[in-house]
Nucleic acid binder design. Sequence first.
DNA 1: CCTGTTAAACTACCATACTAGTATGGTAGT
DNA 2: ACTACCATACTAGTATGGTAGTTTAACAGG
Lengths: 230, 230
Amino acid sequence: MTARQNVRGSTRDYSYNIIRNKILRLELEPGTKISEKEMADELNVSRTPIREAFMKLAQEELLDIIPQSGTVVSKINLEHVEEGRFIREKIEKEIVTLVCSNFPEDNRFKLESNLAMQRLCSDKKNLHNHLFDEEFFQLDEEFHQILFSSCGKARTWEMLQMLNNHFNRLRLLRLSSDSNWEIIISQHHEIYRLILNQDVDRARKIMEEHLNLVVIEQNELRKTYPQYFI
Amino acid sequence: MTARQNVRGSTRDYSYNIIRNKILRLELEPGTKISEKEMADELNVSRTPIREAFMKLAQEELLDIIPQSGTVVSKINLEHVEEGRFIREKIEKEIVTLVCSNFPEDNRFKLESNLAMQRLCSDKKNLHNHLFDEEFFQLDEEFHQILFSSCGKARTWEMLQMLNNHFNRLRLLRLSSDSNWEIIISQHHEIYRLILNQDVDRARKIMEEHLNLVVIEQNELRKTYPQYFI
DNA sequence: CCTGTTAAACTACCATACTAGTATGGTAGT
DNA sequence: ACTACCATACTAGTATGGTAGTTTAACAGG
């Protein structure tokens, strides 16, 4: 245990990350009842760090803790999704505006290799018919994160991440059920091109469309996975 | 203890609220070293709820917890202030846009009485030379919160509050050191008038100016209270 | 006086025991 | 068959003891 702690940080953070991933990748499905003790036994740690991880996840609205009764993985709340998406859309339009007027040279390379990886990931998926949706999700996240870093707002990205867990769960659900990632990738490329051309107005418009993709498909997702939604 | 719990919620929330208020009203000054045990003894509770309250406050960046070493009240970080202010400015311009196009009748009364209370609070201050800055701060908060509720985004306001603790500490500092609240009040009135007139463009502009007031004075505050800043 | 060492006095972290609410299933009484 | 009640087995909340890492300050040697 002590050795493990040194490698991976505190037991609390370790537990937090494990549980969070299980929730986001729907290994723990929305509506599932879990308990501190059960999870503590499963991860071979005591209740305290689990409990603290639960608290953090409850703040991010991934868990609903009912005092003296139990804890359940929260269902995806489409109102919460929309509020998170709203914030992200409005902020990210401002981010892309900032980036248009000043895009640091070294981040250009980062963004280009990220875009190349996205293409690769999509091709791999079409060829081998494997599940690369988590990998693609990560690349998608990275793309946007680079934009935030490029204008010195990396921390803003982190802050928004905390508010967007419901939105992110929906996005991951979308990736795994929809095999056509081409629209996403082409929009990413388009945004990059517009940034280089410093075409603020069009960049803002494409970003807006980009962050509205999920909205269009959310009704379909709701039909396919009704048990995941509130 | 049990009786107290029933009245005020869990011991954890009680502790959290007490400590948070002490930090925001600078009773616990930025840079102060505190410990779980010391605070537990002071509030007559055990270390566990205090520890959990500390965690929550650390997430909101009001505390810096250094593992195995200690916990200090975080100093006001002007970069954090600016990132929080940035988000709030951009979102609140969108909020005021929404409210301009549809302002519910019943919230009109709420807003008007809030504005009247602000005026009263300011007058009381000028007359009796007492400290009403906390009361005014609350009214200021309420003004903006009503706008968010008016367009069905009350939860967005709650979420932004979590990110804006550094910004809020600076605002409170400003209120207590600057005796002229007239600019703030007149801007609030102006925003209200523009909403009624559905003058979106000017409303957005005034809101932007309003949320930039602190920026102008932050250098002066930094000079007056250098020990509060990082 | 200065510097490197060490031991003691902190700290937060974690494990565990206990308390007090809550859900549930069985049973006695109707 | 139904209902009210109670025993029991959960749950999260709280208290507390012990551990390991960090800071501090006393002290030895230069």
